[in-house]
Design a protein around this nucleic acid. Structure first.
Lengths: 332, 332
DNA sequence: CTGTTAGCGCATTCAC
DNA sequence: GTGAATGCGCTAACAG
């Protein structure tokens, strides 16, 4: 493949001039520039980004590290990141960890080895993992999940508020025993949504008992099992708030399998939408969040941090809204 | 960040020896090797893949170019690719084109510039685009969609057969006027599934009329509009076969919106599953395909081609199966 | 405004 | 089995 030396020879200029034309930093005699362009075309010259990256000790790759590519929440988010990345001249390397620390570790190693320009991460994220990146001075933005023990740029939604909306809505519709299926304790999102649920109960003078709380894994099967466990308990709930989309699906499956009618017997509200939610019967009431914008915001923060590494970390919080559909409203 | 020179100095050996230890190609005195390892640890040495790539003129990045990251079909496929890539020591750069030729072009440019190790592609793929890659001797595998005008490694499913299964199944269930909503003409998948539909009709002595065929865009809205167009036609169908998952969803939405009962008034079979298909009412009958394995197979082909570039291109065809659920069976 | 030169970090000759 | 030297392709001084 042709190099700038080949182009330089062909255009009868120096390699430096070719480089200048290529990057447009300094001004070059139009005649020479034209010759260079012609030569590049003749030789089908393709700039070698690897060499360029080595020389500049910086790359144009971002890593987006997420825990479940099968969750539409993350794909939508990634799309937001990607659109911004593209227009800022970056490419996105998608890293799916499946919540597996070893996979995560391998990806971090790749980020370090490839000297990637930045990372957007949403995993369980022990801060030890993140520290490896920060020590290497690689810009990092946390998305959807807050990281403990480190202060970095973060993009979140208003989890507590959203969870409160969902819970209050169920109470407003006459449900008495509202349960909560939340995610792993160590994940901020799970904790915040649980807290929002608890606060909403207390605000209505209800007791927030642990008997109505289940911790699952943010996945469909986990939601199913948690719902089953609630139904099998001494005092089953008459409604449930599930703190992510897949667990909501799992919970509803469980209800369907047992022939329990939604919303008549048990009301359901989930956090985050699923695709074709309107085709599901009953259609699911959810706390919707701006997934795509979440990605865009994170990409924006990353861009700013790359431009200005010493800038103080900031947190962006986007808002959520309640989407009332059929699964949570019963004729009173 | 530490380089092999720093490590060499610390371990009191030459940089060449550090490089040897790093790559384990040649044998090194165990004592020295131990010193090197110690030094690497002390300095928290991270190999610089960029420099390595430049030196070797090869990278460990694969590009996976797909047209819609929002389609679970592709994400599942990507996951298959990724798992194989990981274990073969490659990372995956996900490139979402949204069927936009310009985005596609930018990604191809990035592939070329970054000298990526290989490409797995599933887009409209004018062969001109692919030729840029082939000319640069970058290994390419086509997935899901066949490329015209070039002979390269390809992974497909048995589209015609699957479409035949779906169509025959509808006829077997007493539907008389089976329509087909297929994808863009230029995409092989759309053409093959349409052909399978037509053949199945003829095999049953039916006429395969264009009046019952609609070309859409493989997306939800397209499916919706196509269904509407069919229903508004002079001779509306009593059943429909949609050639991908999202268009199936769109078609069903249209039917629901119009209060048309599925499967009683109109039967529906789709190609490819959607997540939580069982929660959708009525549950959707589909031609299921091994999406994850499709990705794995493509990754396998890519690995082989990288190892042996002169190897003859091969085509892998995986099979499909009919999943009968509620949307296509009516009491006769 | 242009050309010469050096070096980014590494793997690989080639002598020893 | 080991070390010195070279170059992968590019950009950024610097000198002209």
């Amino acid at each position: 493949m042709a190099t700038i030396y080949d182009v330089a020879r062909q255009a009868q200029v120096s390699p430096a001039t070719v480089s200048r034309v290529l990057n447009g930093r300094t001004t070059v005699d139009p005649v020479m520039a034209a010759r260079v362009h012609q030569a590049m075309q003749d030789l089908d010259y393709r700039p070698n980004a690897v060499a360029r990256n080595l020389r500049l000790s910086q790359t144009s790759l971002w890593a987006v590290i997420i825990s479940d590519i099968g969750n539409p929440f993350f794909t939508s988010m990634v799309r937001g990141v990607e659109d911004v990345a593209q227009s800022a001249g970056y490419s996105v390397v998608l890293c799916n960890t499946d919540e597996d620390p070893e996979k995560e570790s391998r990806y971090i190693a790749a980020v370090l080895a490839e000297r990637m320009a930045g990372v957007i991460i949403s995993t369980s994220g022990r801060s030890a993992v993140i520290n490896r990146l920060l020590e290497a001075r690689i810009p990092v933005v946390a998305i959807d999940r807050q990281l403990r023990g480190v202060t970095i740029d973060t993009v979140l939604v208003d989890n507590e508020h959203g969870a409160g909306l969902a819970t209050t809505h169920l109470l407003d519709n006459g449900y008495q025993r509202v349960a909560c299926i939340t995610g792993p304790r160590r994940i901020s999102t799970a904790a915040q949504r649980l807290r929002g649920y608890q606060r909403a109960l207390r605000a209505r003078g209800r007791e927030a008992t642990d008997a109505l709380v289940r911790y699952a894994d943010f996945r469909e099967e986990g939601g199913y099992r948690a719902m089953a466990s609630l139904l099998d308990s001494d005092n089953p709930p008459d409604s449930v708030f599930a703190t992510n989309n897949l667990m909501t699906v799992g919970a509803v499956e469980c209800l369907v399998d047992r022939g329990i009618r939604v919303p008549d017997e048990v009301g359901v509200v989930g956090f985050d939408d699923i695709p074709w939610a309107h085709l599901v019967r009953p259609s699911l009431s959810t706390v919707s969040q701006p997934t795509y914008d979440l990605g865009r915001a994170a990409a924006g923060l990353l861009t700013e941090r790359i431009a200005n590494p010493s800038r103080l970390p900031s947190t962006v919080m986007l808002s959520t809204g309640l989407q009332v559909r059929d699964s949570s409203t019963r004729p009173s």
